[in-house]
Design a protein around this nucleic acid. Structure first.
Lengths: 339, 339
DNA sequence: CTGAAAGCGCTTACAG
DNA sequence: CTGAAAGCGCTTACAG
């Protein structure tokens, strides 16, 4: 392999001069710089990442801890991963992808061995076992997902409580007085998926404040169970005029359920989902929805993480918890209830 | 950070002895080994990955080059990624995930800088620009997807030609004599997605051999266009009794199309898709399908890659092209055509 | 504006 | 069975 020593020799300078010429960390005569650059091109030199990491204590790699659970809708996770990956690359970082079931152990492995300069955790649970490992690690970390205890961590998430209130209020203003909310499966909640009950509780509270009847249930994450559930709900609550979905699988199943019942939105039923625009386009979901903004959240997490990685002052600043305000993307699936 | 020097001092031995005690590469007295292990635990030592990589020229990291195109169904790619990631971890390797649009440049970057010991390329095109970079790299690589020229590369893919023949023959044996095949969008073909025409051409050939009429078309990759296309096809070819789908989006759209037309499989129409079982479960697709086996292909690629990485002899062995025989998963969506 | 040297934290021949 | 030393390929104070 061609080393910086080879480049230095070819350019007729010392290794340190070659290094400085490439990094630009001290002034180099134009002529020498040219000779070094020529040698780099001629020899096809690229710095050895391991050697550089050893010398600088920087790897330019960020760990991405993804977590796939059987009962969650995997395609939704992909959006977050791509947001993080793209944002990291723009800032000069590569991504070490970790998908192990035992996330805490994997996190310890990559931080202890200094494979990464920092870490992003996806799908963070209320009492996430990875957090104590992260707090003990020397590298900074950023979370996508709001845990019960945020101390010492930078946290980014959709404001699910506000999302729940927005859904209810939007329907209320249109005149709806009886609604159904389909959340994620109860398993997700039991595992600590706090966003589920954050949205649900806020929606219930807002409904009671507005005098709206809200039937909240946990849905399945797979077909055909979730389709049956939707049918059952519509049978059980014939007075309900609006449907709120915090459940990707339910949203994906709804078009055929409505079609089968001869219903259409918003003429017969108003519908609001909670998913990303990318998701809506992939499955052509015709429902207005609270944008879950996976790419935006991924970018925010990376930006804050890189700030902490690269600046010693930023490292000491107080940690942030940023809840993105929900945005309702109007796809014309809500209207005044049928009279 | 705690180094092997700290461990050595705490154990009262030299650094080399500490290193050997941990690697087991030479015999160490039980007592010394114990002292070293105790010191490791007490101090919480983990070897620095960069330093080890520099000393051994091994990073224990494999690069995973994923490629997301606007007009392809992203969730399908995730399955391959997870297969590769899980298999790599079982063999002791971590995954560097690369999602850049310019795959050839990204590949050069991670191989030139020796960030990885080897590389897996996903979604390989007929004339993939990444291949020349890979051939020039010092690290071995494995492909998932069959390019036009396999020389010097280990290649793993589904046998799409056999898949096309299997689909046709299965229908033929049941008595079908007129079929429709919906392939991926034409864009995918133009970009070099050879698997599309490999399946399609083989299906056409087999059909003509059997005296079966086969209407082959390129489909869209998104709703609602793909749904409209399916409807058009069924209108245009009322005599067709079987539907073959080499297009995930079409498979996902079909249930509601059939429902809307008051048709059911296999009573009115026999259907065979081509997708993974995981995909079928996520979307509860009730159609028999050729299993695309993304996890299996990912595992095969990783196993071969690691063999080449770890054994100098394996490094020199001839390269392999392994086409997995298609397996038809029966979900009871095919039968004799209606009379 | 440039060079010689030390050091990052490992592993592994070389010696005993 | 163990140790002292060299070396992996960089970067960066230290000196001039």
């Amino acid at each position: 392999m061609v080393t910086i020593g080879d480049v230095a020799r070819a350019a007729g300078v010392s290794r340190s001069t070659a290094s400085y010429a490439l990094s630009g960390k001290r002034t180099i005569s134009a002529e020498v710089r040219q000779r070094v650059n020529d040698a780099v091109v001629e020899l096809g030199y690229t710095a050895n990442a391991g050697a550089r990491a050893l010398a600088t204590s920087k790897t330019m790699v960020i760990g991405l801890l993804a977590q796939f659970h059987e009962d969650e809708f995997a395609p939704a996770m992909l959006q977050y991963m791509l947001g993080v990956s793209d944002a990291a690359r723009e800032l000069g970082y590569d991504i070490l992808l970790v998908t192990e079931a035992d996330g805490a152990r994997a996190l310890g492995r990559i931080t202890d061995s200094r494979m990464v300069d920092g870490v992003v955790l996806l799908n963070v649970a209320e009492d996430d076992p990875r957090l104590s490992t992260l707090r003990a690690a020397p590298q900074p970390g950023a979370l996508v997902g709001l845990p019960g205890n945020c101390s010492g961590l930078d946290v980014f998430d959709l404001d699910f409580e506000e999302a729940g209130r927005t859904m209810v209020d939007h329907m209320y203003r249109l005149g709806h007085r009886e609604l159904i909310l389909v959340s994620q499966p109860e398993h997700v909640v039991e595992r600590g998926g706090a966003y589920v009950w954050r949205l649900q509780n806020a929606a219930l509270e807002q409904a009671s404040l507005r005098g709206v009847r809200l039937h909240a249930v946990f849905g399945d994450s797979k077909q055909p169970a979730v389709g049956r559930l939707l049918n059952d709900l519509l049978d059980t609550h014939p007075e309900a005029t609006g449907l709120l979905l915090n459940n990707e699988a339910a949203a994906a199943a709804l078009p055929s359920v409505l079609h089968a019942r001869g219903l259409s939105a918003p003429a017969d039923l108003s519908v609001i989902g909670r998913y990303s625009d990318e998701f809506a386009r992939t499955f052509s979901l015709p429902f207005s929805s609270i944008e879950s903004a996976p790419d935006r959240l991924g970018r925010m997490a990376i930006r804050q993480l890189v700030r902490r990685i690269e600046s010693p002052e930023a490292r000491k600043q107080p940690h942030v918890v940023r809840l993105v305000s929900p945005e309702l993307v109007d796809r014309r699936s809500t209207a005044a209830p049928p009279t």
